[in-house]
Amino acid sequence: MMLKKVLATALAGVMLAGLAACGGDKDTETASATAGAAGQNWRYAHEEFEGDVQDVFAQKFREYIEANSPHTVQVFRFGELGESDDIMEQTQAGILQFVNQSPGFTGSLIPEAQIFFIPYLLPVEDEQIVEFFRSSVAINEMFTELYAEQGLELLTMYPEGEMVVTADTPVRSPEDFRGKNIRTMTNPLLAETYRAFGATPTPLAWGEVYGGLQTNIIQGQENPIFWIQSGGLYEVSPNLIFTGHGQFTTAMMANQAFFNGLSAEDQQLVRDATAHAFDYITEYVPGLGDRMLEKILEASDQVTVTRLTAEERQAFMDRAPQVEARFIEMTGERGAALLEQFKADLEAVVGE
């Protein structure tokens, strides 16, 4: 596993050297408001595999750009330029123009982004969650300012599906989590969530998760069902637990210097392409989890599915306030104000 990571990192370095060597002058031109009729090639990286949600979103964005302008978009999938932290660094450096990254990784850069990991804050129902992302002031105004402070133009956030836990044994209570090392992204608040749930949070890069489950270094992890299916995680962690504790959320953004250097026409093009991809993906994701779960059950007779009852879920919900308190402790007044607006936006959509 370590050798594979070293090789992947080396390959990413070679690719990036090539991109930088051949793209420097082009990036300068792209940043100019006078892009011209010849068009530019824009580079866009995301965190998932071919055909996964972020890839579908990226392809719809690319299709719109290329159908409505002389520009082209080159999409890089997971591992082609490294892992999540690598592609974020490359975006901030201007090597990439666009990046799709979940707040699970951005949380170390923007602590307030960890709000998405407060358990039982976001509903898991598809229609409610889509309307929330469309209309939320917290997401569409407050988060835009937070990302801008890091040199990033936040273009949209969108949900990818309910988070599902996989483990070496079925789990129905916090007591069942005791003694289990549960993989988390490098996100302090997510670690706090699993600590509250009774488990031992274990931060681990994605490239090490399958092997960690296979060798029992970790006994579980969480992801939306489509990722559990495409990554084959059910093969080494066959017990699926639907706790209803949250949605996997991701953000699509641009290097801000690049975006600000675009003509007004191209800025609107990017926003229109983003809206086009958002509309498509919010129709695509509902039902995706059910379809992928069917594929998992067809592929393996070792898989179990546990859906917590209302009473069982309440035992986990009772532990959520300590995670919320930890979020405010981490983020201070800005985090508290964001959380207040977040809750007001949710109430406007789903009620008290």
Rank of each mutant, 00 (worst) to 15 (best):
Q219W: 01
G244W: 03
Q256T: 13
G231F: 03
P238H: 10
G231C: 02
G220I: 02
L240W: 05
G212D: 06
N223Y: 04
E208W: 10
G207P: 04
I241R: 06
N216M: 10
I218F: 00
I225H: 06
N239F: 06
Q229A: 13
E222K: 04
Q214G: 04
F226Y: 15
G231V: 02
W227F: 09
M253K: 10
N255W: 05
T243Q: 11
Q256F: 01
S230T: 14
I228Y: 02
T249D: 14
L213Q: 06
W206K: 06
V236D: 10
F248W: 14
T215V: 08
Q219Y: 03
G211C: 02
G244V: 05
V209A: 14
I241T: 15
P238D: 11
Q219N: 12
G244K: 06
Y234F: 09
T215Y: 07
N255D: 08
F248R: 12
S230L: 01
E235H: 09
E222F: 01
F259A: 07
W206H: 07
I217F: 12
S237I: 00
Q219E: 13
S230G: 04
L240K: 07
L240F: 08
L213N: 09
L213R: 05
I225A: 08
Y210H: 08
N255K: 05
M253N: 09
M253Q: 13
N239C: 09
T215M: 08
I225Y: 02
F226W: 15
N223T: 06
F242W: 08
G211M: 01
G246K: 02
G244E: 07
E222N: 12
M253V: 12
F259L: 06
F242V: 02
E235C: 01
W206D: 13
E208I: 04
N255I: 03
Q221G: 05
F258Y: 14
F259T: 11
W206R: 04
L240D: 09
S230E: 10
N216K: 15
E235G: 01
N223S: 13
G244S: 12
T249R: 11
A205E: 13
G211D: 13
V209D: 08
L233W: 09
A257Q: 15
Q247D: 12
N223D: 12
Q221D: 13
I225N: 07
Y210N: 03
S230Y: 04
A205R: 06
I228Q: 04
P224S: 07
Q219K: 11
G212P: 02
F226H: 15
F259Y: 15
M252I: 10
Y234C: 00
M252A: 11
L240N: 09
L240G: 07
V209L: 10
E208R: 14
M252F: 15
L213I: 05
F258I: 07
G244A: 11
W206A: 11
Q256I: 15
